[in-house]
């Protein structure tokens, strides 16, 4: 059967569509001009301005801290949730649980943000906690919506994992908790790392939910970026975008390199299997 080239061509066009805007941002971040259309010369001007913007830097630092805490919390809860869905069979209220886990994947952020804010306000009225809105409420809200993504990642990894590994451990005398920590956890570790990174990125990037549940003094990076670009274009944002892209690209390249090396070693080891 002759394979049509059409999909490949369309894939190329689609990828260009995906990447063109990002490439443009990066290129114009080095432009020595306010205009984002006319190239007037190479300059690091916008990077200097960005690094001089203490408000932006503070917000970035806050966002990173929030994202770190969120990722850690979401990984714990999301892993347990994934475990429940993949391994616990039927338990009371499973349908409700599965619904509550998958709804945040698609729930419009304005609704989640509003609902969480009203929860925090009501809780403060009722029990006096959490007192006011700020970093804590942001982290709680972020954990709530990112744990669903972690749960999906972990669950699909667990589903593809051979259950008899866990059964074998239990058969050899390990209790369920021990089985989880000594067998399951090391085997799904890569998925847990992916889940952590996913939660970190989602938290770092979130604007809408954060805006609802943040308070005075807890302005995150996306909030600053949003309020500044809402009024028009700001070239420092290009510089910021370039830094983000550079960090992500480096991370991905590193991960790809490590993975390739691991695969090579493994292949070599497998090929010598059976020989002393």
């Amino acid at each position: 059967m002759r394979k049509s080239r059409l999909p490949m061509v369309l894939l190329g066009v689609g990828l260009a569509f995906l990447y063109l805007p990002i490439v443009l941002l990066v290129v114009y971040s080095f432009n020595d001009n306010r205009s984002l259309t006319v190239w007037t010369g190479f300059s690091l001007r916008w990077y200097h301005e960005l690094l001089a913007d203490s408000q932006m830097l503070e917000a970035a630092w806050l966002s990173l801290r929030i994202a770190f805490a969120t990722a850690c919390g979401a990984v714990v809860l999301g892993t347990l949730a994934g475990l429940m869905l993949a391994r616990f069979g039927a338990f009371r209220g499973r349908a409700l649980f599965a619904g509550m886990i998958s709804a945040p994947l698609v729930m419009p952020e304005v609704i989640m943000g509003l609902a969480l804010l009203l929860l925090f306000v009501s809780a403060e009225q009722l029990v006096g906690w959490p007192a006011g809105r700020g970093v804590l409420t942001i982290i709680l809200a972020h954990i709530t919506f990112t744990m669903s993504f972690v749960a999906v990642v972990i669950q699909s990894r667990l589903v593809s994992m051979d259950v008899s590994l866990e059964e074998a451990a239990m058969d050899l005398g390990a209790r369920p908790a021990k089985v989880f920590f000594v067998i399951t956890l090391p085997i799904i570790a890569p998925a847990i790392v992916s889940g952590w990174l996913l939660a970190f990125t989602l938290s770092l990037d979130d604007l809408v939910i954060t805006s609802f549940v943040s308070g005075p003094g807890s302005t995150t990076l996306p909030m600053i970026v949003f309020s500044s670009i809402r009024l028009g274009l700001k070239p420092e944002i290009n510089a910021l975008a370039t830094i983000v892209v550079a960090v992500v690209a480096t991370g991905i390249a590193l991960a790809g390199f490590l993975e390739a090396r691991r695969a090579r070693i493994r292949e070599r080891e497998e090929s010598q299997a059976g020989r002393v």
Partner: peptide
């Protein structure tokens, strides 16, 4: 990469 930045 950031959603906001891609919209920007």
């Amino acid at each position: 990469t950031s959603f906001l930045i891609r919209v920007y």
